[in-house]
Design a binder for these strands. Structure first.
Lengths: 148, 148
DNA sequence: TCCTAACAGTTAGGTTGCCTAAATATCAAG
DNA sequence: CTTGATATTTAGGCAACCTAACTGTTAGGA
């Protein structure tokens, strides 16, 4: 039946997709192991760049619970990369802001990580790069449907 | 200059790619949280399906160190999903084989996870699904270059 | 033959990143 | 001025990974 064929194709695609997900986790781990700043910390730090991120917002944005965000923020604070200060408008809240060192660390980490990935992407054919480029927005969309 | 333009494009693609990687980790986590069998365990268990995987081979295949593989194998053994037996040809080695319960568990977990992903993929347009399909082999290739 | 280096796996101990539940402090509404 | 909601931190735990050290086995010389 047509419906079943469609389902089967979708399930087969899902299977391949899952395999790619597994691989992505591996690549991510590898990327992290090469650097000083973990990607969890980098994520938090990036959010603190604009100067006034709140803990809850950071957590929501990264898809983790608030205590997990707090944990990373404390580590970054100890490393001198962010500072925490009371929100002037709401004393319950905390504003997390990157320090100058934090800003520099983000730039550095981002550059190094991008160069690492770019090095790999550079070995692909133009057609392959195009395939990646075309798929990225779809991956984005998939992620958002998972979050919701 | 042309070279710099190419580099910039590559770095920009790398940046987007990294973002997708980050998202993949999130999706993977979500997928794991819905299930009884973690993806680490599922990976090991799948490798034990044929009946005679060795610990070192499992570890290499999953991109983890031997003790990490041992740890997962022990958990699976305690759950009755695999059994460990001495390799008849080399008493240093251990053969890890899925039990009947293990085989059933793989099928179940795989089906449920594929259905979850297929549910998401089903909301995409045909063009978007094609984009994903086209990119998956490239992702595979990228993974292999990271491993090496 | 026997010794030793290489190899396969396990054990011990540590790290990171995530989680839930409970405590603390503040806000805002009645 | 009390009470419920909100923002964060603290405490305690868990999963998956790692390195270093240990046990047992194999295999290649001297």
């Amino acid at each position: 039946m047509n419906t079943n064929q469609a389902d089967d194709a979708l399930l087969a695609l899902a299977q391949s997709f899952r395999e790619a997900l597994r691989q992505s986790v591996y690549v991510m781990r590898r990327l992290d192991s090469e650097e000083q700043l973990s990607s969890a910390q980098l994520g938090v730090l990036k959010m603190a760049l604009d100067g006034g991120a709140r803990v809850g917002g950071i957590a929501r944005n990264l898809g983790v619970k608030v205590p997990s965000a707090t944990e990373q923020i404390i580590k970054l604070e100890r490393a001198g990369l962010v500072k925490r200060e009371a929100d002037p408008d709401d004393s319950r809240a905390v504003r997390v802001a990157a320090t100058a060192a934090g800003r520099a660390a983000v730039e550095n980490a981002d550059r190094r990580r991008n160069e690492f990935i770019a090095g790999i992407l550079g070995t692909l054919s133009p057609a392959e790069r195009d395939a990646v480029q075309a798929a990225l927005p779809v991956f984005d969309k998939i992620n958002h449907s998972v979050q919701s």
